[in-house]
Design a binder for these strands. Structure first.
Lengths: 187, 187
DNA sequence: GCCGTTCGTGACCAATCGGTGTGAACTCTA
DNA sequence: TAGAGTTCACACCGATTGGTCACGAACGGC
């Protein structure tokens, strides 16, 4: 009884994510979204509500993929792994979508965006902290303040994202990441 | 023979810098600049050329204040000092203007912006590297790869900026910065 | 095969964008 | 004080913004 959409909303959302990821929220126009998603403006509004809601949905879609360090039972291996692939090493230098959003909208008092940012950062920090406690307990890394070191790792990860967006090569970023991790082994 | 401007261009530029610093380039409208600078649109264009040129001038004005680590003869003290004040600890959480610009315009292929970004980053990295060599030679820090550690410090500084914009308190940032510096003492 | 429902194209909306032109107000030289 | 030379407030420009609407096309249940 209903005519099915002749586009895949999930795929369209993924495409929107990548457009926002590249250009940010403000710099992305509806025309750009139309062509990128391959759908008309009406379909876009019927499906996603508005540009703003689409952005929030894209943020949520991005947030579903979490670094391995947030896995239950994560330890030293997962900490290393979190610095091993993904965001910062993107050859397209897109950085981390959350980092980009923090810079663009962090000062705005938009609760919908801010709570998502905060949730992401605390989730990452808690993941690091839990993994660090385990790594310390297992004797994989020396005794140290897990909370402080978790903050240190979050900061380093975000710094790598900025460096990536700034044009630093993946190889160089990896060596910096390695240097960051080395610091934990010698507190 | 000429009627003097009844505003101070230098002060206006400083105000423009702070507006761009807060909101970024795209999100800043001419109307906003008019009210912030306290001058009309025509005066703005007569004095600064265009919105884009004003932005570049603001970037240059910001770039004139350099961290102490770039001073000639800088050593370990200046490295510490570079992590001690300024950008990241701004109670208004504006981050570093260059970091914001890297995120907003880093992927654009705009030579005027990109060269400024690159110049800033390399100048900072070289400052760290020089200071590190001196610190190592003076025995203030253990032997280590100065180039790698300089990159590590740049990354950390940019990470601190993002964290600041994300809402992290100055006190917490300072402890993270301390943790970052500690890592150099134990490579 | 018909009909009600949904989809999507394209025109359209007011608002705002960056940028320009005009003319009155002002300051200084002569 | 006359008038040259600038500055600046304001209106205005076309283009583009995010968002809406109406209508013809495409579909599925009966």
């Amino acid at each position: 009884m209903v005519r099915p959409k002749n586009f895949d909303p999930e795929q369209a959302l993924q495409r929107a994510l990548h457009v926002f990821w590249n250009n940010g929220y403000r710099s992305t126009s509806l025309s750009e979204l139309e062509t990128a998603l391959g759908i008309g403006r009406k379909s876009l509004y019927d499906t996603f509500g508005s540009k703003r809601e689409l952005f929030l949905k894209a943020l949520d879609a991005y947030a579903t993929i979490r670094p391995p360090v947030e896995n239950p039972g994560a330890g030293w291996e997962e900490i290393v792994e979190s610095f091993g692939g993904g965001g910062p090493y993107d050859p397209e230098h897109r950085s981390c979508f959350f980092v980009n959003t923090i810079i663009e909208l962090g000062l705005e008092d938009d609760p919908d965006v801010l709570t998502r940012i905060e949730h992401h950062v605390t989730s990452l920090r808690e993941g690091f902290e839990r993994a660090l406690r385990k790594a310390i307990a297992e004797g994989r890394v020396p005794e140290q303040d897990p909370e402080l070191t978790a903050n240190y790792l979050c900061t380093a990860l975000q710094g790598l994202s900025v460096m990536s967006r700034g044009g630093t090569s993946p190889e160089q970023l990896r060596s910096i990441a390695q240097r960051t991790l080395d610091a934990i082994q010698h507190p």
